[in-house]
Design a protein around this nucleic acid. Structure first.
Lengths: 298, 298
DNA sequence: CGGCGGCTTGATTCGAGTCAAGAACCGTGG
DNA sequence: CCACGGTTCTTGACTCGAATCAAGCCGCCG
């Protein structure tokens, strides 16, 4: 009954299967019918376009492995990244629903990617056969929209430091959701810049500051997050909008002053590298205009 | 206080009916079944919240008349407006689909509004009864997402002048789509500021500049667009993302240099207040870094 | 070893924010 | 009809965050 090649099952369709589940497709039958219609299509290297601007294909694309970004380029060449995409994410659902609007939105590979495609007619059949599939795809669209919205809030109303911090938090949380290492930043500084609407130079300076605050550190070629909790606090990141209930507990911001498990100041919590902790505790506060005053030491 | 007056029937459901049509609901039966389940709920005055942040109602809201905005407020009090909503628009579809994510997104009335509500269970029934309804609502979500996306591009990568210009173009086009006067700006400068991520003061200066360019003029209490074509050109506004095919012809940017009906410079076109025209032609060019050089007069 | 893409850094400029104050324009109530 | 308080709009002076320009550097791959 399963005509799926094992390799694809393991390395390719796994994330999609999981994604469908989180979108509310419980039944194995539906999930399999869905996945059977997906053809592994191509592998794209870093920087290459997965979906070029201006096309109107008769199919939709799913990211099976790797990280990609949804972006649009202005006439003057500058780029805005709308969102990053992780294994299991649909790259261009919007095209299925609305057809020829938004044709200048494109998708590019951030890391090496492998992608699958489903014909629009296949999607049609699935949707009409299983109502839950229609529902699931609608959900995916809503969540994507939430990501755009939060991005807009971030870019429109936050200073550079928290903007970058928030973006990083989102990516880390989403990485965790697809079982990627959630302490590594996979994006280049240019990617970050184009996503948060800053210049590379300035993003570089923000990264420098994040390092000084003890939240980020270089690890080999890439960046590593060394103090996730402080980063979350700095960005006031609340993963709620991503609709990933299972991640909530680990990412939710503990409000300073909450009697529960929040340590008001130096607290008795888990013994982390306390020197680093202290540094970021104090220093981050200075860069957080909204920081709650810690209660009087009394 | 009123038990569903006739007025609401006439002036209220019309826009929704039209909206459903543009979303692909052709059948009268479906549309009527939909509208029958909507209860006219309340009238809200300017500034009031239609949907307060932090709530989780068991129903969705439709805007029947007036203009509203979808927004979110940061801890420090600053506000980001995600989108404006016009008669027929759904205020919080996202809540139906994803339930408890995004609860801090709110909706406020920009002008006096009247709203209707549909229970989530009613929506459920409609969707399972008529596939086209599910499709229509999904479409609505996709279009809303496109609006967020374009907003992100605008705020992230455009200088203040074109940012404001683009926002105005979008609103004018959408106003036209719902038969509101498409030359009047109904938003306050504060609304505009919060939507494009600028300070009011700066938006005020941009407005001043737009007036000097001859694109905008004060008319009584509100602002009027006096040269829509130039405004569109300045913003490089392409209404495509709104998926309103019937508006395309009137709003599409004519690329300078296109031999068709574009008058290269002083042309023989319709005699508009030509002095104003000349002013904006030349002046706008100066504020448009990407302006195509007009071909040699030869 | 040379070339290239990504990261760093300094110097300078400039767009946009903040602060402050005043004007215009409400709606409302005496 | 006018005086009142409240939004919204304007404008100027000043500050500051971020862009731009310009090198130099590092690590990598052919």
């Amino acid at each position: 009954m399963i005509a799926l090649p094992k390799r694809a099952e393991l390395h390719g369709y796994g994330p999609l299967r999981q994604k469908l589940r989180t979108l509310g497709i419980e039944s194995e039958e539906e999930a399999h019918d869905f996945m059977r219609r997906i053809r592994v299509s191509a592998v794209r290297g870093r920087t290459e376009d997965i979906i070029a601007p201006g096309k109107h294909p008769r199919h939709s694309t799913v990211l099976l492995a790797g990280i990609a970004c949804l972006y649009e380029r202005l006439a003057n060449g500058s780029r805005q990244i709308y969102a990053f995409q992780y294994p299991g994410d649909f790259c261009d659902l919007h095209r299925h629903v609305v057809a020829d609007a938004n044709s200048d939105v494109a998708v590019a590979a951030i890391t090496n990617c492998s992608i699958g495609i489903v014909g629009h007619d296949d999607l049609e059949q699935l949707i009409s056969r299983y109502p839950s599939v229609g529902r699931a795809l609608w959900r995916a669209t809503v969540i994507e929209a939430s990501i755009f919205r939060k991005g807009l809030l971030n870019v429109g109303r936050q200073p550079a430091l928290q903007r970058v911090a928030h973006l990083l938090c989102e990516q880390l949380a989403r990485q965790e959701a697809v079982h990627l290492d959630s302490s590594i930043v996979y994006l280049s500084q240019l990617d970050v810049a184009d996503a948060v609407g800053l210049s590379i130079v300035h993003v570089n300076r923000i990264f420098k500051e994040l390092k000084q605050l003890g939240l980020l550190a270089k690890q080999g070629r890439s960046m590593k997050v060394t103090n996730r909790e402080q980063l979350v606090r700095l960005a006031r990141f609340d993963p709620n909008y991503l609709d990933m209930p299972h991640l909530l507990s680990r990412w939710q911001l503990r409000i300073a002053g909450t009697p529960s498990n929040a340590r008001p100041t130096g607290g008795t919590g888990v013994a982390q590298t306390s020197s680093t902790m202290m540094l970021s505790e104090a220093a981050v506060g200075k860069r957080d205009p909204e920081a709650q005053r810690h209660g009087p030491p009394a």
